[in-house]
Amino acid sequence: MTDTPALGEVARNGLWSNNPALVQLLGLCPLLAVSSTVVNALGLALATLLVLLGSNLAVSLIRHQVTPTVRLPAFVMIIAAFVTCAELLMAAYTFELYRILGIFIPLIVTNCAILGRAEAFASRQPLLPSATDGLMTGLGFGAVLVLLGALRELFGQGTLFTGMDLLLGPAAAGWGITVFPDLDFLFLVLPPGAFFATGLLIALKNVIDDRLERRRRAREPDTPRESRRVRVTGTIR
């Protein structure tokens, strides 16, 4: 029986310390393929969040009833059921965006980040920590998706929030902003640009973590020399 972690620690791990995209490097296929614009990234982020939250809740509820021999197949079936729900919802309410995202919605079933959280966390923890883990991991993955989409859209096409009406309806049709007119940097729009931008985000996170660690060490009081001194008793022969 594993100890139940604090909810604050679970949230911090999902959002930052153990972010699936920047630390675990899971789910990179949809991350790199879909994040050409903000609206595409946001659509996939919401679908992934729904599947993560639902699958973690379901796995936590049945964790005592599923035997180890059928555990992984049962988890995959649960994830597939929630992916089907997300796919049907998108097809019903955001059909044009659903067509743009294409195969990457059904491929959420194979996202290692979702199955990994079900196996490593939800199958061992009660309902509330599992729900928190699913929510925060989904938000962490979605934040990277949206940030990557914003970077690629801004510096690749010179715009932001174009096509938001595909996700949010006609009310969001005028949300598009042209920041750099006549900009067409094809490198960032294509998959190599996605790899490059993702590497920059990972490097930025590592720099931030390094600075936070240095500040934490600087705030710690110096340990007195007497407490650091090692005293050896006895004689070595």
Rank of each mutant, 00 (worst) to 15 (best):
Asp133Glu: 06
Leu53Ile: 15
Lys205Leu: 15
Asp182Ser: 12
Phe195Pro: 09
Leu46Phe: 00
Leu212Ser: 00
Ala122Tyr: 14
Thr223Glu: 12
Val51Met: 11
Gly142Arg: 02
Leu53Lys: 04
Gly27Cys: 08
Thr178Leu: 08
Thr84Gln: 03
Leu44Gln: 11
Leu183Ser: 12
Arg231Val: 14
Gly169Phe: 01
Val232His: 12
Leu204Gln: 13
Thr69Gly: 07
Pro30Ala: 02
Leu200His: 09
Leu52Gly: 10
Ile208Arg: 11
Leu25His: 13
Ala45Lys: 04
Lys205Cys: 03
Leu53Asn: 06
Ala21Asn: 09
Pro221Gly: 14
Ile105Phe: 07
Gly176Val: 09
Pro192Ala: 07
Leu46Ser: 01
Phe95Trp: 03
Met164Asp: 02
Ala171Pro: 07
Arg217Gln: 13
Pro73Tyr: 09
Leu166Ala: 10
Leu28Tyr: 06
Val230Trp: 14
Phe104Cys: 07
Arg214Tyr: 04
Ala33Glu: 05
Gln65Ala: 15
Thr69Ala: 13
Gly134Ile: 06
Ala171Val: 15
Pro5Glu: 00
Leu25Ile: 14
Leu168Glu: 08
Ala91Arg: 07
Arg152Lys: 00
Ala92Pro: 04
Asp3Cys: 13
Thr94Gly: 02
Gly174Ile: 08
Leu26Phe: 04
Phe75Trp: 13
Gly169Arg: 03
Ile103Asp: 10
Met90Asp: 00
Gly140Asp: 01
Phe187Leu: 13
Pro68Ile: 05
Val83Pro: 02
Arg117Thr: 03
Leu53Met: 11
Glu96Phe: 05
Gly8Met: 11
Leu25Cys: 01
Ala41Pro: 07
Leu166His: 00
Gly140His: 01
Leu89Ala: 04
Glu9Gln: 15
Asp222Arg: 14
Gly43Leu: 03
Ala118Lys: 05
Leu212Ala: 05
Tyr93Arg: 15
Phe187Ile: 12
Ser55Thr: 11
Leu147Cys: 13
Asp209Cys: 02
Asn40Ala: 13
Ala11Ser: 11
Ala173Trp: 06
Asn13Gly: 13
Ile62Gly: 03
Asp184Lys: 10
Ala47Phe: 00
Cys29Trp: 10
Ala41Cys: 01
Cys112Pro: 12
Val23Leu: 07
Val232Pro: 14
Leu53His: 00
Val76Ala: 11
Ala113Arg: 04
Ile105Gln: 06
Leu46Met: 01
Ile78Thr: 12
Asn111Trp: 00
Gly140Met: 01
Thr4Phe: 06
Tyr98Asn: 10
Gly8Gln: 06
Leu168Lys: 03
Phe155Leu: 13
Pro68Cys: 00
Ala113Lys: 05
Cys112Val: 14
Ala33Met: 08
Leu128Met: 09
Gly140Arg: 03
Pro181Gln: 05
Phe75Thr: 14
Gly158Leu: 03
Ala21Glu: 07
Leu186Ile: 15
Val10Asn: 03
Thr223Tyr: 08
Leu201Ala: 08
Val38Lys: 07
Phe155Asp: 12
